[in-house]
Design a protein around this nucleic acid. Structure first.
Lengths: 332, 332
DNA sequence: CTGTTAGCGCGTTCAA
DNA sequence: TTGAACGCGCTAACAG
């Protein structure tokens, strides 16, 4: 049954018929016990209520469709010890493969993963020394690109707004610092406003308020993610700060919402669905023992320029009411 | 080991010591095989990339924390046959409990669930005849409440905007129809604009455009969900339609974003995290054989009134650009 | 290519 | 109260 091509067609037919007649269904517990291998692909992420990871999971699920592997999702709640515990639990299940978010596992966690004896893919980032395989994008480089975009649009007092500040956010912040220093725009930490609070639209507004209190001459912000960016945009509207004229805004992830907000928000597009799909494909290839498989993939990113940073060359006014996009006067 | 109190303390200590020394960890596959019962709680939902279900899952996960049960999430992609197949797969795992979204299972699916021999909780809705247990809210009643709110605020040409139109959305639409008819405001299907497309901010704007093309005198909309509502708000801003003066907007679910948008959006709050948590608690109680447990729970809903429908007593137009939230003059 | 057999690690039952 | 024996349904290894 497991290897249909090694058997005479006649026998195969008989088996198939018997399966039908008896309504046979394999018992996964028995399979796992006898083979010392389950059909589970463990997926360890920091949060489920974050669109970013939902997109990743979609890719994973789609990649596993029409296979007899099952994804098993767990969330670490952004804690390293939580991750270790979860990995320890997984190791008792003898999973067929593991997908873990990020590259900041503890030494212990790395060890557990290596000892699992199954393919392991780290996702969402790049790294020169993955545990096994890796697919994602360079967060720091993406942060740099975002800030370069703002500079190219003529902004100079560029702040950074970040919630939660998990390792990926830290790397984006590092990218921001790289560019600000290289361009001679750095003012120490004066323009950086972060909070350990979970990310949300509301917190985006708060962060902007806090930063403006310290730096009234701020003219642009690079936001940790699109939630923060949209929250900051709303805060601008509440304060009568026109975007993009008085304030440029760049988000991160390019969620659906930033493309249709008014004004639309410039964002760094990352490929989360593709990342999940690829991670699964890497595992499946490894499981089939296919040669020449890629063990490391950079999915890249793109800065999608939109109205929230489109300060140059826009001269006229859109219609009235509720209309934040109304440059009155323009010099370039 | 499984029943520590039936054993002499001395023996218990010896066992504990041995467990430590050997680094013993139970093998879930062997447990499942020997007992014909796994420690898995199956969770069947239509989509993972929908904030609504992410909230539900959070509740489920938190409820299962510190138990030795594990949630297993699968998504049906909004298809009834997908649901049947997934349930069939689950039944081979002999789950400890099942949580399924909605009440619109096929007869076959219902049968599979009843035959699983484990507690089953339907979530997100109410029903007089659940398969086993149920926790959620009355979607139709919630739809009615949303429309009543708009009427109370003086709106009369009230449209309905809906994407995807899954069974829950259909029930909200039914609630809309109930009220429009009862109040003599119904115009057949003229004011109803729906699409089978998945919900998104973008589609919210499109739906409003389409409806406005047919009904230029529209003065309010009840939206299927907050994504659609926010997309519609952005479309209003693009068209220079002032909210709430020229257009009232009510969303559904009360996501974080609607409370901080400008203007903030009135929405129907539902209790999704609580629903997930309660569903798990019901299952755990059943599994422990606890008596007097509630088998059906209505988690209710609340209309959270915000600026997007706050037309009465607000007489003048908000200040210019970016500033919808600043009433200058107030009469009540 | 096909039929047979021995465990996988646990829960359960029975005897002590 | 404890220990021993059996078998859950399957995979893998082997002999036919």
């Amino acid at each position: 049954m497991r290897m249909p091509d090694l058997v005479t067609p006649a026998t195969r037919a008989k088996v198939t018929a018997a399966v039908e007649a008896l309504g046979y269904v394999p018992n996964p517990a028995a399979q796992a016990l006898a083979s010392a291998r389950s059909r589970i692909i463990g997926v360890v992420i920091p949060s489920l209520t974050n669109q970013i990871f939902a997109d990743l999971l979609s890719g994973v699920m789609d990649g596993l469709d029409a296979t007899d592997y099952t994804p098993q999702f767990v969330n670490t709640r952004y804690t390293l010890t939580g991750e270790e515990n979860l990995l320890r639990i997984f190791s008792t299940q003898r999973p067929a493969g593991m997908i873990v978010s990020g590259v900041d596992q503890t030494a212990m966690a790395r060890q557990i993963l290596m000892d699992m004896g199954c393919p392991v893919v780290q996702v969402m980032e790049t790294s020169p020394n993955p545990i096994d395989m890796i697919v994602g994008c360079d967060q720091r480089e993406a942060g740099r690109a975002a800030v370069h975009h703002l500079i190219a649009k003529g902004y100079r007092q560029i702040g950074f707004l970040g919630a939660r500040m998990d390792p990926r956010a830290q790397r984006r912040l590092a990218g921001y610092r790289d560019v600000m220093q290289a361009e001679g725009l750095a003012k120490g930490e004066l323009l950086v406003q972060t909070t350990p609070k979970p990310t949300s639209y509301t917190v985006g507004g708060q962060l902007l308020s806090d930063l403006l209190a310290r730096c009234p001459d701020l003219d642009a912000i690079f936001c940790n993610n699109d939630d923060v960016a949209l929250g900051a945009l709303f805060e601008c509207q509440r304060r009568g700060i026109s975007v993009p004229e008085q304030m440029g805004i760049v988000g991160f992830n390019d969620l659906d919402v930033v493309s249709c907000s008014v004004p639309s928000i410039t964002s760094v597009r990352t490929h989360r669905y593709q990342t999940g799909l690829t991670a699964v494909q890497m595992i499946l290839a490894e499981l089939r023992g296919e040669p020449g498989d890629i063990r490391s993939l950079d999915t890249g990113f793109e800065v999608i320029a939109r109205q929230s940073t489109d300060r140059l060359g826009r001269l006229d006014v859109p219609p009235s009411a509720n209309q934040p996009v109304k440059p009155k006067d323009y010099h370039d």
